[in-house]
Design a protein around this nucleic acid. Structure first.
Lengths: 221, 221
DNA sequence: TGGCTAATGTACGAACTGGTTCGTTAGTCA
DNA sequence: TGACTAACGAACCAGTTCGTACATTAGCCA
């Protein structure tokens, strides 16, 4: 989440539409992630900004559209990370593992993103549906996965018959759950899935799981 | 979720503490799942009940405690399902697959439960923490998993070095994600993870994944 | 340099919401 | 059978919350 820098306000009013907009988005992201859509307070967002509530309505139109804008930016960030992925020079096994680790790392580094997605689920993805930007964003990772899968199957290493979307779901589910259920799981089973000293353990576990699934001996089938 | 039956109200006031309490819980479960904790309206819950808001405060004390009670009952239901599990006569591979399928089926059959857990995560599990009942509920499934794992390792079938809690997390993550991200994932990737005609596909995929992980050839390690 | 507009700030209000106050009644038990 | 209490209902209240009407100003361009 790109954070707006903090230039000491030179007393009077500053006119900088881009900065004002970005600052509202930053604070709104935090507030929505903190309290959910309904729980988030427009006044609270305004108060933690160097501008006023009036500007939120001026730039975004309303609470609903503001949340949509927040989601759009959050998804853009993860898509950009995926785009920087460069694994196709690796052998299929290493490539998949690398890709899974990228997802793992991103989820861990962006708990706010996970919270926003959880919140959006409660609202049945209506804001995503309302956004043209998100409908067309696609997922670069999907193309990469598709190519790695094809290469792996061709070489005979991968035996599983999955497509890119399902494998992406499998990888995401593990990464998502670990963060999204950190507190509930912790309270119920007494284990912190995001504890720092367990990080490598779960990161390896994810890779092992995906590779085992893809390369399992299916001669008995 | 046990639903209260609907005896035609015989005109006057009926006094049935247990029924009133249960009815409030039923409606509250729906309302909280629908709109989240903050989004849920106490007045709305009362309106959809044959009693009044006054009774909610009479029996539960407040919105917060009502939500805690709703969570307690929801978790109790899944724990009961786990308790009825009878898989220890099966071989380890079949037993684990059976257990994974039970979790799969329960998550699919109880989307409201998934929503409640997601909502509780947004509130950092504070209601679970506030409930003595939930702190001690444990998970019968964990004991079962532990015994199956031990048997599988002893027979040499299972090569993975996981404990019951982590395997439970792995199974749950797949089942949880599929339901919890149904709408968001669908809107972004155009695939409904809970589509009826894909049910067997994902159910098999889960089992394959877990078994592959547990039985993977680790001789190269 | 003067005017024009995008950008900004202040103050307010109508509707809502969780929670409470006060009064009523059904059922039971001595 | 009468009194006592658990169970219930209606109306209300104080604080909050999204959204807006109105006033103002910075900065650019003719």
């Amino acid at each position: 989440m790109t954070t707006v820098e903090e230039p000491a306000r030179s007393g009077g009013r500053i006119r900088d539409a881009a900065r004002t907009r970005a600052e509202i988005l930053d604070v709104a992201t935090q507030e929505f992630a903190r309290a959910g859509f309904t729980g988030a307070r427009v006044d609270e967002i305004a108060a933690r900004t160097r501008t006023t509530k009036r500007m939120i309505y001026y730039y975004f139109g309303g609470k609903e559209q503001l949340f949509t804008a927040v989601l759009e930016r959050a998804y853009t960030v993860i898509r950009q990370a995926e785009q920087q992925l460069d694994v196709e020079h690796l052998d299929p096994v290493a490539a998949i593992r690398r890709l899974a680790e990228l997802t793992f790392d991103h989820h861990e580094a962006h708990p706010d993103f996970i919270r926003l997605v959880s919140i959006e689920y409660i609202h049945e993805a209506e804001h995503i549906a309302a956004s043209e930007a998100l409908g067309a964003i696609g997922s670069p990772a999907l193309d990469v996965i598709g190519r790695i899968l094809a290469a792996g199957r061709e070489s005979g290493l991968f035996t599983a018959d999955v497509d890119a979307v399902d494998l992406h779901a499998m990888i995401s589910s593990f990464c998502f759950f670990r963060v999204a259920n950190r507190h509930t799981f912790g309270a119920l089973f007494g284990r912190d899935l995001v504890a720092a000293d367990q990080r490598e353990h779960y990161r390896t576990m994810l890779g092992d799981m995906v590779i085992a699934y893809l390369t399992a001996d299916r001669s008995a089938d």
